[in-house]
Simulated assay, not measured.
Amino acid sequence: MHPWIKDKKIMITGGTTGIGRATALLLASLGNDVFICGHHERQLEDTLSDFEKLNALGSLTGLAIDLATEEGIAELFKKFDSMYDHIDVLVNNAAIAFQSVKEGSYDDQAYILRTNILAYLSCAQAALYRMEPRGEGHIVNVGSMSADVREAQSSVYVCTKGGIQAFTESLRKEANPKGIQISLIEPGSVGTDMQPYSPAEQRKKIEAMEMLYAEDIARSIVFMLSQPTRTSVVSMQVKPLRQII
């Protein structure tokens, strides 16, 4: 078995920042065709520009859309289908941070739920329709250790990540008999735009081994995707050494 995944058609949601961005750059540089989406055009352009500088084997392209809408998800897969005749891998990663249930309006919380849960469901559904006729494929849901830690002052975010954990476990039982892999990765603290810390504070935490680089999670996702078909990595939790949770 080759130690890396190669020559695959891959979609990554939330692929313009943080974990999604690091995963997209790594998978594309390994020789895959990677399609990403993000909410902001500027972040998309920056990610694509950074990949061009790598002069790597694969390809990276994408689309700026809002995954909290049915129209955005339809546009995402329409564009992907126009470029590729199949999908090998979906990495469901796009999510928004949110704190206590006491914060925000009904509409604010509904938007979080549409992005952090419903978009995962809808993208998985669309990917399964395309994977099942071929009898192969891999969906990786990026969750969070918050689903188990359930820290205070984060009840809305915890709700969404707990939902992703349960969804992934149930979906695996539906998809595995059809030859499709379903994996869950749950990171601990990772230095991304979602953190309430400044870049300088994040660097200090990373140096203290209390926070990870996004690239650390990207390598873990590549490990999941690089296994032989007979091997199913069900779930993985990855945290900084000195994050005591």
Rank of each mutant, 00 (worst) to 15 (best):
Ala124Thr: 11
Gly137Met: 08
Leu90His: 10
Ala97Val: 07
Ile96His: 02
Leu90Cys: 03
Ile112Lys: 00
Val101Arg: 02
Ile117Gly: 04
Ala127Pro: 09
Leu121Ile: 15
Glu132Ala: 14
Ser105Gly: 06
Tyr106Gly: 02
Arg114Met: 08
Ser122His: 10
Ser122Trp: 13
Ser100Asn: 13
Tyr120Phe: 14
His86Ile: 05
Ala127Thr: 10
Asn116Gly: 09
Arg134Asn: 05
Ile87Asp: 02
Gly135Phe: 06
Ala110His: 04
Asp107Leu: 10
Asp107Lys: 09
Leu118Asp: 10
Ala110Met: 06
Val101His: 07
Ile96Trp: 07
Glu136Gln: 15
Asn92Lys: 04
Asp107Val: 03
Tyr106Ser: 02
His138Val: 05
Ala126Arg: 12
Ser122Arg: 08
Ile96Met: 13
Asn116Trp: 03
Ala95Trp: 05
Gly137Arg: 06
Tyr84Ser: 12
Cys123Asn: 12
Leu90Gly: 05
Ile139Gln: 04
Gln99Met: 14
Tyr120Arg: 02
Tyr84Leu: 08
Ala97Glu: 11
His138Trp: 04
Pro133Tyr: 05
Cys123His: 04
Glu103His: 13
Leu118Glu: 15
Leu90Glu: 04
Tyr84Lys: 12
Asp85Met: 07
Pro133Leu: 07
Arg134Lys: 15
Arg114Leu: 11
Glu136Pro: 08
Cys123Glu: 06
Tyr129His: 14
Ser122Gln: 15
Tyr129Ile: 07
Ala97Trp: 10
Arg134Cys: 06
Ile139Gly: 05
Val91Trp: 00
Ile87Ala: 01
Asn116Leu: 08
Ala126Ser: 15
Ile87Ser: 02
Ile87Thr: 05
Gly135Cys: 08
Leu121Met: 14
Ala97Met: 11
Ser122Asn: 13
